[in-house]
């Protein structure tokens, strides 16, 4: 079987990463401004307005598009930064806005009806009725699906909705429904939905205690690693906790999503675009992962078997999972 290649939507946290993604064969680069208006509000990361302008020029000259994520929830009483992010992205010529907040979707539809609106995964739209609502109320043309659905559920969904779907293919993985998780805020006071950070570095501490390394988030111990064991970020949901007297990775092991093995199934399920996670990752990650997925997407489009991507070294805990795409994950 062959078909139209899946659109490859790739992350960039810096102009260097943007160029790396474009050069490695991205169809689209997605990015955010350097503030709380996007869900990767990490220190030293993201784009100024001039950097976006330059990035747009670089990408458009090479036939690549830019989507701008304004995908946190605007603060009550201070919508200014979020409105400006939408205005500036639209006026600079972004090819689409990636939005989650209903108020902001409404604003974007009224002020910039001509700019494409995509529904961020942070909106957690996991069923046809929800997706139809966003389409009818705010003219959303694509939805990034939450990482809670199986391939079968995605296929069923695609025949019931009037919009394109984009799914995550590689990288860090939320095990909770995105945009509906305040675990990190509970431990740190900094909220993924409001501040655009999860398990922020400012609240991460590592301590070496005897023969083990302890990682903490705020005042809570998230994990400890005896010598000789590989480890990951102290992301709260990838931590090791004790339940019923047993210590273990109750939510999820430190692992990365890799959906490359189910690309043909995702194509057959009617998915339009593949998203690579990792705006916080380095240029080397971007170049390598994007190039590998370029090959994979092209192979899948030709109907060829998807070659092994060899991206093991880029994954957290050096492990990969197909995540929610297969039902056994649940």
């Amino acid at each position: 079987m062959s078909g139209t290649p899946l659109e490859l939507v790739c992350p960039a946290g810096t102009p260097g990463a943007l160029r790396a993604a474009v050069d490695a064969g991205a169809d689209v680069v997605y990015l955010g401004f350097r503030d709380e208006t996007n869900a990767r509000n990490f220190p030293g990361l993201n784009f100024s307005r001039p950097e976006l302008r330059d990035g747009l020029a670089y990408a458009h000259e090479r036939g690549c598009r830019i989507y701008v994520a304004v995908n946190t929830f605007a603060a009550a009483g201070n919508p200014g930064p979020w409105h400006r992010a939408v205005d500036d992205a639209a006026e600079l010529g972004a090819d689409a806005l990636i939005l989650a907040d209903i108020g902001l979707l409404d604003y974007a539809r009224r002020r910039h009806p001509e700019t494409r609106r995509h529904l961020s995964v942070q909106a957690s739209a996991s069923n046809p009725t929800a997706i139809a609502y966003y389409h009818e109320a705010f003219g959303v043309q694509r939805v990034v699906l939450p990482r809670v659905l199986t391939v079968t559920e995605i296929a069923r969904l695609n025949v019931q909705i009037p919009v394109e779907t984009e799914v995550f293919a590689f990288g860090g993985m939320c095990v909770m429904a995105e945009g509906r998780c305040t675990l990190s805020a509970y431990a740190t006071g900094r909220s993924p939905n409001m501040n655009g950070v999860c398990s922020p570095a400012s609240h991460v501490r590592y301590e070496q205690l005897g023969g083990r390394m302890v990682s903490r988030l705020g005042r809570f111990t998230i994990n400890e690693f005896p010598d000789g064991e590989p480890a990951g970020y102290p992301t709260l949901c990838k931590g090791r906790f004790v339940a019923g007297g047993c210590a273990g990775y109750l939510f999820e092991e430190p692992t990365s999503l890799d959906a490359s093995t189910v690309l043909p199934e995702l194509m057959a399920a009617g998915v339009r675009a593949l998203k690579i996670e990792g705006r916080q990752r380095g240029r080397a990650y971007i170049a390598e992962v994007v190039a590998a997925f370029r090959r994979a997407v092209d192979a899948a489009a030709r109907g060829d078997p998807v070659p092994p991507l060899g991206l093991g070294g880029m994954t957290e805990g050096l492990r990969e999972t197909t995540g929610a795409y297969t039902k056994t994950w649940r």
């Binding site: 929830f73 605007a74 009550a76 907040d101 108020g103």
Partner: peptide, 11 residues
């Protein structure tokens, strides 16, 4: 997710 007056108004 109702975080702001814009969303509240729509709902």
């Amino acid at each position: 997710n109702v975080y702001n007056e814009g969303t509240l108004e729509v709902l």
